[in-house]
Design a protein around this nucleic acid. Structure first.
Length: 309
DNA sequence: ACGATTATTGCGTTCTT
DNA sequence: AAGAAAACAATAATCGT
């Protein structure tokens, strides 16, 4: 047992969410798992990202069956989407207004803008949520995941976790937490690349959030890394599928516990590549995986040894 | 034979507890 | 501060042309 057993120790096969529909190939059940929708029986990949339940499920059930007008309520707005603006030079019918009227409206607009932020906390919330949206778009995360990040931010603020930390750091941590909880492969570095704060601040905020909020984060699952590695190397789907299967078997049998998940994924891919005599060098693999050649060799040999390959 | 790739091994470094 | 893992560097062994 090592100090890094935290990696990969509790992988659960039924982690993915089962969704409606059946596989066109074999009529098997479909489920979304680590950023893609695939058949549970034959492994056929239907979508490369989870279904986006943006509307109407992202709306808070505010209407209770009543009719409602206006934009849908959403987690991503600090006031859940209830906002109004005061226009500029024209009235409701589009007519130009007099200079006096415009000055009146200007004052009104200014006061209205101030009134929108009822308190400091509400202002922080607004900034945080808009930052989450910005980073979420930059990382091309599904809207449902962005909503989850926003919920985390709200919880963090309610738990008074923001004092002493920057809004941006906590917003970034919320994004990362949502990714981790969904079993995605984004790293803190990935989030930091689109954030306006340093990595250390995000790490700190995330650790606090994880501890205080008790996030449902599982250890990273090597199989989740395989699709990205394969697409970056331009490998065929059948190769990807076999590498994924191998990675799943490895986690199921506890091989590679305590090792970097990417390394395990790369090791699985290395085995498939070698078996097929595919023209991809170890350094190519190491390049896209972001680990050294030695690590890939070590995982590959370990997998061969302990999985009889 | 030659260059490229892979293997092997020792060792300072980095990360986690 | 200690222990494990990953990275690095030097060197040998294969492989393809």
């Amino acid at each position: 047992m090592t100090t890094r057993d935290i990696y990969d120790s509790g992988f659960d096969e039924d982690d993915g969410r089962t969704i409606q529909g059946t596989c066109p190939d074999c009529e098997g059940r479909l489920r979304t798992d680590s950023g893609e929708t695939a058949c549970t029986v034959c492994g056929l990949v239907i979508e490369d990202r989870p279904f986006d339940f943006e509307e109407p499920s992202a709306e808070i059930s505010d209407t209770l069956g009543r009719n409602r007008t206006g934009a849908p309520l959403t987690e991503r707005r600090h006031d859940r989407g209830l906002s109004s603006e005061i226009g500029f030079g024209t009235d409701a019918k589009g007519n130009t207004l007099s200079a006096k009227k415009r000055r009146q409206l200007g004052r009104l607009r200014r006061e209205h803008g101030r009134a929108r932020w009822g308190s400091k906390a509400e202002r922080n919330l607004g900034i945080g949520l808009s930052e989450i949206s910005r980073m979420g778009s930059a990382l091309e995360l599904p809207k449902s995941l962005q909503d989850e990040a926003c919920r985390h931010f709200r919880q963090a603020q309610d738990a008074d976790l923001l004092t002493g930390r920057s809004i941006e750091a906590m917003a970034s941590a919320s994004v990362y937490a949502a990714c981790r909880e969904d079993g995605r492969i984004e790293t803190i570095e990935d989030v930091a690349a689109v954030a306006r704060v340093e990595t250390v601040a995000i790490t700190n905020a995330y650790n606090v959030m994880n501890r205080e909020l008790g996030l449902a984060v599982r250890p990273r699952n090597p199989a989740a890394f395989v699709p990205r590695l394969c697409s970056e190397l331009g490998l065929e789907l059948c190769v990807e599928r076999r590498a994924r299967a191998l990675a799943k078997r490895a986690t199921a049998e506890g091989v590679g516990i305590g090792c970097q998940p990417v390394g395990v994924a790369a090791g699985c891919l290395a085995i498939v590549i070698e078996d097929d005599g595919i023209a991809v060098t170890q350094s190519d693999l190491a390049g896209v995986a972001g680990v050294s050649i030695e690590t890939i060799r070590a995982r590959r040999d370990q997998l061969r040894e302990e999985l009889d390959r």
